[in-house]
């Protein structure tokens, strides 16, 4: 697992760039990560990201789109607008969480 410099801080990531240590993330880093993938974060983005962080803290697993929609109350369509293309992966990346487990 590589360590990368993000904003002058060493951050542990996996081969794809997803953070591997929950505690290394803060909102400043989240904003930097968002910038890296071309996202400008609005209040609504932050509501989603805070939901994801809190949900992960409780069960150590990144919420799927379905879970973010049913439990967080964000419409899937809206998530596609906020995080275009691949919302589940982009949300996890910016929130500093593991890529959601695809499946098996």
């Amino acid at each position: 697992m590589p360590t990368t410099m993000i904003g002058r801080r060493p951050i542990d990531v996996n081969d794809e760039g997803f953070l591997t240590a929950y505690d290394q993330w803060d909102e400043e880093l989240g904003a930097t990560l968002a910038e890296l993938i071309g996202l400008e974060l609005t209040d609504r983005h932050w509501q989603v990201l805070r939901f994801l962080r809190a949900d992960y803290a409780g069960r150590k697993e990144t919420a799927t789109l379905r879970r973010t929609s049913t439990l967080g109350g964000f419409g899937i369509k809206e998530l596609f607008t906020l995080f275009p293309g691949k919302p589940a992966k982009k949300m996890a990346y910016v929130a500093g969480l593991p890529k959601p487990k695809g499946c098996v």
């Binding site: 590589p2 360590t3 990368t4 993000i6 951050i11 760039g17 992966k89």
Partner: peptide
Amino acid sequence: TDPSPVLPGPIKPTF
């Protein structure tokens, strides 16, 4: 004691 190399910049995932 961390043996992992430190990359100078972030890894940008391919989405």
